[in-house]
Nucleic acid binder design. Structure first.
Lengths: 148, 148
DNA sequence: CTGTGTGCAAACTCTTTGCATAAGT
DNA sequence: ACTTATGCAAAGAGTTTGCACACAG
């Protein structure tokens, strides 16, 4: 009774044991869908994806998962600390696979997000939070537009 | 034929000539609704409002304006440079009456936004934007949570 | 008068939810 | 077997749009 579950019937990235462990440690059952989504999310370094985009990728990769499940999974991963939510644009929610302290460039119009080289920006003189409040986090978004 | 249009049939703030001029200079006709919304927006210093909130205020103030018109007006004001859009939360769009360079505290859960004392924060080492891009603006949001 | 603005309701986008079926342990 | 996850379709929130009527210039 070895872990036969690791041999999945779709092929994505290698390192599935790692993915499996990661999902497991988040307290989530390593289902086909969750493993597939986790693979897509975590196999290729830092990513910034909307639910729609991830869904599309999954389907393209041959993992027919429903959009509702993608949303559920993204939120579960977020609660488990595997992802971070980026509130950059009004409408869409982006999920960032890099949960450490860093900031973002955002290209207007294109809806593209990417990391600012960590250590490139530094915030001086963080203001005191008001009485009874503490800082949850600091988000910096540098909005870019084409130089014409 | 003095500007009789300044005598409106609802009473909000004083300084309506100023509001009237402001709307006019934005290239917009000073209609009842636009003047009322502008009054609510600009009479009381810096504000951060969603369309829904402004609509509610207007109705409460006795100016029966439709939500669609509020949205239209907010966008027209934004294009005219009178307002600035804040992308803080996933869902709602906030409009900021202060269009100058400043940053925000955001209280999680409560959806409250307020200004950080300008000059309190400063960003050091702004990173170079990628080739062909220029910085449109820099937004810092400090998310707060109750200290328990 | 002429053209722009407004209001209403319908349409749209993104996201969440309820419930029957499928899959994991 | 027992429990949790998934998929579908419907519902929800926020926002936008089309068109007839109203108002400003």
């Amino acid at each position: 009774m070895g872990n036969r579950r690791l041999r999945l019937d779709f092929d994505l990235e290698t390192g599935l044991e790692h993915i499996d462990r990661r999902v497991r440690e988040a307290g989530l059952r390593p289902t086909r869908q969750r493993l597939a989504l986790a693979s897509l999310l975590f196999a290729k370094g830092d990513r910034h994806l909307s639910a729609e985009e991830l869904h599309e990728e999954a389907v393209t990769a041959g993992v027919p998962v429903s959009l509702a499940t993608v949303y559920n999974t993204l939120h579960q991963f977020t609660e488990a600390g595997l992802l971070r939510i980026l509130a950059i644009e009004g409408a869409k929610t982006y999920f960032d696979t890099n949960t450490s302290d860093h900031h973002h460039f955002f290209i207007e119009g294109e809806s593209r997000v990417f990391d600012i080289d960590p250590g490139a920006v530094r915030v001086e003189n963080l203001p005191e939070p008001p009485e009874g409040m503490e800082i949850a986090n600091v988000d910096i978004v540098i909005r870019l537009r084409p130089k014409n």
